[in-house]
Design a protein around this nucleic acid. Structure first.
Lengths: 149, 149
DNA sequence: TGCATTTATATCGCACACGATTAAATCGCT
DNA sequence: AGCGATTTAATCGTGTGCGATATAAATGCA
């Protein structure tokens, strides 16, 4: 507790460094992965978040905006403009749910569903560039899922 | 190779799912961590990327924009506006290097340096909320550092 | 010296992310 | 039935991220 002890000053400094390494690593990895996908997604006319949204829709197509937001962990202020761009690109259709006019139902168009075939080659290309053993990839993924839930 | 075999169609689908889980996990974790920091950083008047930039500067203060960009893995089109906002907030000063007028040197102001004390309590609070064993945090961090380098 | 090349930032346009707020529809409770 | 509370999207403003491009300074070499 005495101000002459360096401990009281160095402990927070050390903490800042440790912390930096975790949030840095996550921040940097996310940015780098986005940059890795970009050239592949450009060919499909998709951005990275749009690609993620399409992945969700390819799994199950008629979905409400809220359900999409839950899957992507995004709220409507991010999702609505993104979905409008996908709609403008002819990949999805948006319509109010007649049963509950508060909801908006998002559905793949034929073009959107067909895009899945072109996207099918992407994961393999990414895996090659990541150069991570499948096992490591799996454990990394599982650990990330538990971060800040 | 025959179109009657389901294998030729299900392999890419499976790949899309595996891939989704990795990029999803990374994307989601990065967004969630940013949201975790926000309330703490609001009190300091910093955004999350600004906080990361300050962390770098607290380690070594006079630094060129390029060196900061290397540390943060960001280019000038992202960094320049961010640094201008930190400058407007009185936390840093920007000035051309007299030895090489192409470079811009970024230095902490007294206020910027002093902010470090207020930031010192952040890592501990984040660690509590993350609720991850230190060991796991370390290995996660190290693995993330190798992703898409 | 002269001039093309390289290097270091800055600018611009687009697309996120998010908190705060709004608006409309539905629910719940009496 | 009525009406306040809740739910669901959309809107708005701010701050990233990034590729493409611009600009200016330094470098290199004929």
């Amino acid at each position: 507790m005495s101000p002459t002890k360096p401990k009281s000053a160095s402990a927070p400094v050390e903490a800042l460094r440790l912390d930096r390494q975790l949030c840095f690593a996550l921040y940097g990895a996310a940015n780098r992965v986005t940059r890795l996908y970009r050239p592949l997604l450009d060919a499909l006319g998709l951005t990275y978040p749009q690609y993620l949204a399409m992945l969700v829709l390819w799994e199950a197509s008629p979905r409400t905006v809220g359900a999409l937001g839950d899957a992507l962990d995004l709220n409507s202020s991010t999702l609505t403009p993104l979905l409008k761009r996908l709609e403008a690109g002819g990949l999805i259709a948006r319509a109010r749910d007649p049963k509950d006019e508060r909801r908006v139902i998002v559905a793949l168009t034929d073009r959107g569903a067909a895009l899945r075939d072109q996207a099918a080659t992407i994961p393999e290309k990414i895996l090659c560039q990541l150069d991570l053993p499948l096992e490591e990839l799996g454990s990394l993924r599982d650990r990330l899922k538990t971060v800040a839930v």
